[in-house]
């Protein structure tokens, strides 16, 4: 338990430092870390503080958010296939973000973009939960998710194709795949408040989720308000996923892979899985972002490509398991 916490936090820290020292500009490890802390008035500090630091911070924040949201959703729905990307929450957040950018709402005030994405994500979670029902089977959940994802994706493409800006259409890829390239500290400050708020909300669900493993009646008997849990889940997930998607696009599979990998180590207790998945998600996204920069530095490979390459086979494996168990 504490060993796992120690291990995961060391991993995140190590990857965070690696993310800071890996990059297309040729700067030594010692030099780059020194430039980060001591302002040399030159380009090196600029690169470290304005290019690499925000990128690494965002990877931690967004990866953590997605891992946490995935674990919370899977705990609440008691369904290992739930993932904010897969069930269309990220997609609807991306649609709302695109609308905010195209209508100029995003430019009108600082938090216009993340708040719109939050609204989009809220609608997404809400629709999926309504369509799939409170104890929805895997099948209805995934079907509802696919429908919402496809719809949101189609509208996103439509809006970007109609834009008078010739670059907008190319951005369909960004919104569907996600990327952390060329982000600045502004993006960090814009996303941070909602991510912290959402993460705190999801963290309060820990006890409720543990109780829910005994069944809903037992949970109610223990004094857990199911309505409140449900609302916390909806708002918490929408806040973290909305803010993440607003700055980095829809990055899939993190919320699916991480809880699945960590579940055996936490004794299947959803409360422990929550924080473990937050750490795990941060580590996964940091690693993916390092991979993106190390493999094809000049090609702006999208993050979602890497996470999907890891996540999709696992998803197929999960479906296979589900079928075999006859659920």
């Amino acid at each position: 338990m504490t060993r796992l916490a120690l291990l995961l936090s060391t991993l995140v820290l190590a990857l965070f430092i690696a993310a800071l020292v890996v990059g297309p500009a040729d700067i030594g490890i010692y030099q780059s870390l020194k430039a980060l802390f001591v302002d040399d008035e030159g380009p090196m500090t600029l690169v470290m503080r304005e290019v690499r630091l925000p990128r690494a911070l965002l990877a931690v924040m967004i990866g953590g958010s997605l891992g946490l949201a995935g674990a919370a959703m899977q705990g609440y729905l008691r369904n290992p296939l739930a993932d904010p990307g897969l069930i269309g929450v990220s997609g609807s957040a991306a649609l709302a973000a695109v609308l905010a950018i195209q209508t100029g709402l995003a430019a009108s005030f600082a938090f216009g973009l993340p708040l719109s994405a939050l609204a989009g994500a809220l609608i997404g979670v809400f629709l999926v939960l309504v369509l799939a029902g409170p104890r929805g089977s895997s099948l209805t959940l995934i079907l509802a998710g696919i429908a919402i994802s496809a719809l949101a994706g189609a509208f996103t493409s439509l809006v970007l194709n109609l834009s008078p800006n010739p670059f907008a259409a190319n951005e369909i890829v960004f919104w569907m795949m996600g990327s952390l390239a060329d982000k600045s500290m502004t993006h960090v400050w814009v996303a941070l408040p909602l991510i912290v708020l959402g993460a705190l909300m999801l963290a309060t669900m820990a006890r409720g989720l543990d109780a829910l493993t005994l069944g809903e009646d037992a949970a109610e008997a223990m004094g857990i308000g199911l309505r409140r849990i449900r609302l916390t889940l909806i708002f918490g997930t929408a806040a973290v996923v909305g803010a993440s998607t607003a700055v980095a696009g829809a990055i899939g599979f993190v919320g699916l892979v991480v809880p699945h990998l960590l579940r055996p180590f936490v004794g299947a207790r959803p409360s422990r899985l929550l924080w473990a998945s937050a750490f795990g998600g941060a580590a996964m996204l940091l690693a993916a972002d390092i991979a993106v920069r190390a493999i094809l530095p000049a090609r702006d490979l999208k993050l979602g490509v890497v996470t999907a390459l890891v996540g999709a086979p696992l998803f197929l494996h999960l479906i296979y398991l589900t079928r075999r168990e006859g659920l």
Binding site: Q102, G104, A106
Partner: peptide, 15 residues
């Protein structure tokens, strides 16, 4: 170009 796009946002990056 008229109307915002993320592609052009990078030109306003602090760097």
């Amino acid at each position: 170009y008229p109307a915002a796009s993320r592609a052009e946002e990078v030109k306003g990056h602090p760097v």
